[in-house]
Design a protein around this nucleic acid. Sequence first.
DNA 1: CGTTCTAGTTGTATAGTACAACTTGAACTG
DNA 2: CAGTTCAAGTTGTACTATACAACTAGAACG
Lengths: 147, 147
Amino acid sequence: MTTAETAVEAIQREMTIFARRARASAGRMHPELSLVSYTLLGHVEESGGCRAADLAAHYALDKSTVSRQVTALERAGLIERRVDPEDHRVQVLHLTEAGAEILAQVTLSRRAAFRERLANWPEEDLTRFARYLERYNAGPATAADPD
Amino acid sequence: MTTAETAVEAIQREMTIFARRARASAGRMHPELSLVSYTLLGHVEESGGCRAADLAAHYALDKSTVSRQVTALERAGLIERRVDPEDHRVQVLHLTEAGAEILAQVTLSRRAAFRERLANWPEEDLTRFARYLERYNAGPATAADPD
DNA sequence: CGTTCTAGTTGTATAGTACAACTTGAACTG
DNA sequence: CAGTTCAAGTTGTACTATACAACTAGAACG
C-alpha cells in the first residue's frame, strides 16, 4: 500500500470516529439547542432572514422536518415567522432577540470547547488543518461525507 | 482576532458542517448498514469477538440500545451470539461469514468514496491531514467532539 | 443460603426524520 | 377570467435511534 493510500485510510477512519461521536452528541449538544437547531438558527442569522424552504434545500432536509423544527424554535421563542407581504404563502424567518442571544452563547461555548481542544497546537498546524477541512468539505458531495 | 483564533473558528465551522452531513447520512450510509451498525460490526471484527457491554462502553451507548442493535444485526444474519460457557450471562458476539462479507464490502465502498474525494490531493497534504485528524480525535473528550 | 453484583432484555418515551396527503395562495394559460 | 398547475407549508403516519427504568437470569461473595 502506498503512503497516500495509508493516509486515505487513516482519514476515513478518523472521519468515521468523528462522525460517530458527532452523532452521539448531536442531540445533547447544548441544553437549549441540538446540533440541527443550532445550524438552522445559524443559517437564519447568516442569511438575515430566510424561508423554511431555503433551510430544507440547504441542509437536504424534508420540508416537513424543517416545518417541525421551525415550529419548535418558534415555540421556544428563538425565531419568529413574518408572512411575506408579497407572497402570502411565504414566511420569512428571523431570529428573535432571545434567539440571537442563545445562538451567540452556544457559539461561544462551542468555540471555547474547540479552543481548549486545540490549545496546544502550533499556529501553523491550526491554519493548515483549517485549510484541509475547508478543502475536504468543499469537495463534491460523495458517499464520503461521510457516507 | 489572531491568526490562530481565525483558524480555530474555521475548524469549528468545518467540523460542524461535517458533523451535520454525517448526521444526515448516517442512517442511509449503505442499504445494508447504518453508520452505527457499521462501527459496531467493525468493532466486533477487530476485537475478534466481544460482548454487548464492551460495545456499549466503547461507544458510550446505553446497553439497551446495543441490545437492540445486536438483535437487528443477528436477525440480519451478520453476527451470531455465543453464550459463554464460563458465564451464562455473557454472550460473545462474532461475525458470521455474511457479516464479514458485508463489512468488507461496505469498507471497500467507503474507501472508494474517500479515495475519490481525496483524489487530487498531493500525498504530503494527505499525510498531514491524516495526522491532524488523528491528533484531533485523540484529544481529551470535550464538548468539541463535536459538541 | 441469601444478598448483591453483572449481563442483557423489555417497556416506555422522546427526537429527528421521511413520505404522502392536504391547504392555501400564486401564477400561468387557453 | 376560469381552470389548471405550481409552490410553500402543515399535518398524519411511520420508522429509527436513542435513553432511562424496571425486570430476569445468572454469578459471586460472605
